[in-house]
Nucleic acid binder design. Structure first.
Lengths: 163, 163
DNA sequence: TAACAATAATTGGTGTTACAAATAAATTAG
DNA sequence: CTAATTTATTTGTAACACCAATTATTGTTA
């Protein structure tokens, strides 16, 4: 493989681009918080709950990569705002099923999907070949990171950090 | 511009790739936290302080996009661990200059730079043309997001969310 | 079946982050 | 020289994130 004269420069620029992307996502998510009035974690939980009609607390914690106790607190606050509803399962009375209320569903419908919104607003008016180039570059990047087979989980975490 | 037959599919895949990248970053940063024993915000602050020999609290807050009071708390805990040192400025006795201690410098030297680490581990053994493709795709993406002129700021925030 | 272990959600407690409001001290402006 | 501004801080509130311990239910096995 022929050595590029300025590989290091390209790597540095790529890192800068990655940081810019993170910044853009941060801005979009702050916007989402302002619009919905919910915190990032709360909005994240609502989105995950919306994925299925009903989900048990432990599964919700697993999907959010959070400790169950943390999820309980988030659910307490969401329930106080009447966005979600808890109910004991009939088949197994240990489990608690969490579902969205009518208000919760409405919020999901109107709350902005950050990643989606970023691309929809930005990519809609772009040419095909540019879109393809972006797609190829991203796919290659994911492959580098060894994340091809990782499930593209919904991300709204408070623990996403780049140094 | 000719309409691709499966534009929507490509957009969806690109979003999935973005999520995978976020997940990779999350994993890397957790690793960094485990290694250093610091929280994300603390590590972030240390990195920013390390950028210049000495920085005043208000500037640090601006660079971290945080409220000054939040930074004061973080500095309290870093100072308790003797990683940073506060001193009143001679020229303007209102300002407090924050600098790294010897231990702080050592920590910076050994703590992993997440974005850097991601690419160094992944991109080192990749071919030139793949690297170029990634770079082009990322640059195009940044342009789409309207972030070309945004400073690629160090990111270690607790509020990075994708829905 | 009865004792034991495992699971599910919760409570209580600790530490960190994040901000708003108010304060104290120093500098700058009029 | 007084008034306004700047700088960092304290105080208070809320959310997040986890650990340890608890209650209730289900499963296992002796």
């Amino acid at each position: 493989m022929t050595k590029l004269p300025d590989r290091n420069k390209i790597v540095a620029e790529t890192i800068d681009d990655l940081r810019r992307i993170f910044q853009a996502v941060t801005d979009f998510s702050r916007q989402a918080e302002r619009i919905t009035g919910l915190t990032g974690s709360q909005l994240w939980a609502v989105k995950v709950i919306a994925e299925s009609k009903s989900i048990k607390v432990s599964d919700l914690a697993k999907r959010m990569y959070l400790h169950p106790t943390t999820v309980v607190g988030i659910l307490d606050r969401l329930e106080a705002q009447e966005l979600v509803q808890r109910s004991r399962s009939k088949t197994d009375r240990r489990v608690v099923d969490v579902a969205l209320t009518a208000s919760g569903e409405k919020l999901v419908a109107t709350s902005p999907d950050v990643a989606q919104g970023m691309l929809v607003t930005g990519l809609e008016k772009i040419t095909d070949d540019k879109l393809v180039r972006i797609h190829e570059g991203m796919a290659e990047f994911v492959k580098i990171l060894g994340m091809e087979e990782a499930p593209p989980r919904l991300i709204l975490s408070n623990e996403v950090n780049i140094a």
